[in-house]
């Protein structure tokens, strides 16, 4: 083939490439497909298919434990996303729109720290720190959980926003200043609209990450603060039920929806 002559190494033509690729796809997605399929199974079994039904979705929806967990999850994820995205936006502006300052690399490292430290370490450290704070102040409540989520959501929100700002042509802001826009109006009319897709993408990523978190939540959450993943985790120890499959499918749907919109929005040209 004439086309292959120009490429000395073509991965696709290596022996076994197709088989390995398909193997990966199957191992990744087969369990998910099974899970989705059995959430629609009329039977109680999660291994034997009988017939199609929405029963488990109805059951899950009527299950008070699941409902409460879902509400806690949404509450925590929404609050953490809002706060984290705000901080991430400010951090991204500070690390891209100011003259290079001493310790910029350190600042960058600190913002991204939650990505690099093993989550279990963060979880243990946060737990003992919060225990100390609780003892001193006597304050309790869901605020601690939201705070912990906010912290690990920040780097996820920060990355797409920063990428967006770095892509943005700096002369656009200069052009706005040249055309009599004051710094505030430059931000309102040029910087913010152009970074909006990055902010949205960051917020969605943060939301998904918060929604999915297990380890930190497991450590921090107090009584009545059970999130969906924790609830599922608790139930599964008593065996998998199609009800859990249904909840997982819904969670999966939300994640897929948000992550694909994240990519679609992120791809929009700057």
């Amino acid at each position: 083939m004439a086309k292959r002559k120009g490429r000395p190494f073509d991965l696709k033509s290596q022996p076994g490439f197709t088989q390995i690729a398909w193997g990966c796809v199957v191992f990744l997605y087969a369990p998910i497909l099974v899970l989705i399929a059995f959430s629609f199974n009329a039977n109680r079994s999660v291994v034997r298919w009988t017939e199609f039904s929405f029963d488990w979705y109805v059951a899950a929806f009527q299950n008070e434990g699941i409902r409460n967990a879902a509400i806690v999850s949404l509450k925590v994820a929404t609050s953490a996303t809002l706060v984290a995205t705000t901080f991430a936006t400010m951090a991204a502006l500070a690390t891209t729109r100011t003259a290079p300052f001493r310790g910029q690399g350190v600042a960058f490292g600190i913002i991204n720290q939650p990505l690099m430290v093993p989550e279990i370490v963060t979880a243990v450290v946060t737990l003992s720190f919060f225990a100390l704070v609780k003892q001193i102040t006597g304050l309790t409540g869901i605020g601690y959980l939201i705070l912990a989520h906010t912290v690990f959501c920040i780097p996820f929100a920060y990355m797409p926003i920063r990428a967006r700002l770095e892509d943005m042509n700096l002369t656009l802001e200069q052009a706005a200043a040249d055309l009599y826009a004051t710094p505030f109006r430059i931000f309102r009319r040029v910087t913010l609209p152009l970074m909006a897709p990055g902010i949205l993408a960051g917020a969605m990523l943060a939301f998904v990450v918060s929604l999915d978190d297990v380890i930190i939540t497991l450590m921090i959450s107090g009584p009545g603060e059970t999130t969906l993943p924790i609830y599922i985790f608790g139930q599964i120890r008593r065996g998998i039920t199609p009800e859990i499959n249904a909840v997982s499918t819904v969670l999966l749907g939300v994640s897929v929806l948000l992550v694909s919109s994240f990519f679609l929005i992120g791809r929009k040209k700057a």
């Binding site: 706005a176 040249d178 055309l179 826009a181 004051t182 609209p193 040209k269």
Partner: peptide, 27 residues
């Protein structure tokens, strides 16, 4: 810059990508 009655045509044009031609001109 925003206090000087001086305008610039940039080498890379620096047109606002989120605005139309007319919106750019009216900015």
């Amino acid at each position: 810059p925003y206090r000087r009655p001086v305008n610039t045509v940039f080498q890379n044009y620096a047109l606002f990508p989120h605005m139309t031609v007319a919106e750019n001109i009216s900015f």
